[in-house]
């Protein structure tokens, strides 16, 4: 599996993402600069956390119009796995690949801590290796992770089992329905505020995040094998 990690000016979790895939998974991975226009040859796309364009205007608003974004949207339409973490999630929301928007954290604080997440849907290509309702420990680090959507959108997310992760115990940022991560209708675009790439090695305090990347890899292997034998 060949993965692209998109790098914007102001991305700062790109290296963590790169090493989670390279060392954690042992798979091929490249940095792809935001000004590039093609993602041909890549099997998976990761949009890392950070403060792209200094969070000017709104988090993710400027990155959404970067040169690489049409290729990211194209990859999503082709059914390739696209993962947006933290600022990456915000960019996916701004790009309309996922519904809703981010508000400032309820108590206005930038929160940097490891939280309990509940896996609300383990039947996705990102979460197959977790148990349903399993509690995992993943770090968060954001000032604008207060997920907002209207009632109709929330109902759609709930009815279609598209809420993948929720905060367990306490909700750190005021997000609607404790949402920490959601998936698109076709199940190949996941946005989440917590950082699985920062929990990809036991040395970092938790390796609960690694199974997310392993799930993507397993799914890719199965579908690549299916394509080969059909």
């Amino acid at each position: 599996m060949k993965t692209a990690v998109i790098v914007f000016p102001g991305s700062n979790c790109d290296q963590d993402m790169y090493y989670a895939i390279k060392d954690g998974l042992g798979e091929e991975v490249d940095y792809v600069w935001h000004a590039e226009t093609s993602l041909d040859g890549y099997d998976a796309v990761m949009i890392p956390g950070g403060f792209s364009y200094g969070d000017y205007l709104r988090s993710g608003a400027i990155a959404r119009f970067a040169g690489i974004m049409p290729a990211v949207i194209q990859a999503a339409k082709e059914g390739k796995p696209v993962l947006g973490v933290c600022n990456g999630f915000q960019i996916l929301l701004e790009a309309g690949l996922l519904p809703g928007a981010m508000l400032k954290n309820k108590h206005l604080k930038f929160i940097c801590e490891t939280v309990d997440l509940q896996v609300k849907n383990n039947d996705t290509q990102f979460t197959k290796l977790y148990d349903q309702d399993e509690i995992i420990r993943i770090p968060i680090a954001h000032g604008e992770g207060n997920y907002f959507c209207d009632d109709a959108t929330l109902k759609k997310l709930q009815d279609n089992n598209r809420i993948v992760f929720t905060y367990s115990g306490k909700n750190p940022n005021g997000s609607r329905a404790d949402i920490a991560g959601i998936i698109n209708e076709t199940g190949n675009v996941l946005g989440m505020m917590p950082h699985p790439e920062r929990a990809a090695d036991a040395l970092l305090g938790s390796d609960d995040g690694l199974r997310l990347f392993q799930s993507i890899l397993n799914h890719w292997r199965e579908s690549a094998h299916a394509a080969y034998t059909s």
Partner: peptide, 8 residues
Amino acid sequence: KLLANTVI
């Protein structure tokens, strides 16, 4: 498209 996010 850019200046406002009409979701919020």
